[in-house]
Design a protein around this nucleic acid. Sequence first.
DNA 1: ATTATTTAATTCGATATCGAACTAATGAGG
DNA 2: CCTCATTAGTTCGATATCGAATTAAATAAT
Lengths: 150, 150
Amino acid sequence: MKNPYFSFLTEIGIIAQLSRTMLEKRLPDGVSAPMFGVLNHLARLGGGQTPLQIARAFQVAKSSMTNTLAGLERRGLIEMRPNPKDGRSKGVWLTDKGATLREAAIQQVAPDLKGLAEAFPAGYVDEITPRLSEIRAWLDAARDADNSAE
Amino acid sequence: MKNPYFSFLTEIGIIAQLSRTMLEKRLPDGVSAPMFGVLNHLARLGGGQTPLQIARAFQVAKSSMTNTLAGLERRGLIEMRPNPKDGRSKGVWLTDKGATLREAAIQQVAPDLKGLAEAFPAGYVDEITPRLSEIRAWLDAARDADNSAE
DNA sequence: ATTATTTAATTCGATATCGAACTAATGAGG
DNA sequence: CCTCATTAGTTCGATATCGAATTAAATAAT
């Protein structure tokens, strides 16, 4: 099993796993990596995103996002309000508590990213990230093609 | 949040997720990506590996591997035997059923890898895989350093 | 030898993931 | 209008992940 694509995906999988556990070590108790991702997403793009939009942004099933959002809401880090224009839909907003927690978490995580930056010059990842983006886009398109074929 | 390392890890995470669901679509019902990984590992390295060795090879907590192995054993795809030399330890072996299922699964997955190969020339991933390996190795070492410091 | 430490594996509880089935609301066609 | 299809979101059950606590066996230390 020395197929180069297989090896490539294997490395990807392990890095994803290692970086996720690295991140979770720094997060406040009970806040998971997916939750942190959503907090960042809302901070960058602003409130009012729907659960479905957020699920798509993270390439995750909508039922997974339901679960993540429930955890965030239970902890008072986000707020969900019904959309007055469409009874099926909701909007998600960061609470003050959520914004504050995000800021603090970023400070906690910074040293790890710094360690990575010291070990690998910025150009190192800058060269490969665009390639990863292309592959990611391709996989994403392939999945959609498959779904619509069913 | 345009930190290049952050972007890099984000792409990694999404590719890992997409490739995992792509793989699981092709696997027989009830066989998950981690299970398939273990079957391959045993086929490549041979039987007799301990659960701990396998967990380390996949960079996964040993309790996660206990779980994966239990699923494989329940389906009759592997066999676990006590180590006569050390009562704490076990060895894991592929069963005939497991080996057969692995072969079939590889055939099922092949078309997807082929699609990837057609979209991206082999040299494309060959250039980045070694870099990913370096980063993976670094993250792995960083995690161990952190663990022993506790 | 007896005690203490380390090691291998399991168990437990929380969270994540998925897909499939379901509800409720919107929109389209007749 | 009324029916049918689509869309947004939730629920459910299986599997995954982790870390912490537990058990049992081997090894080290006194």
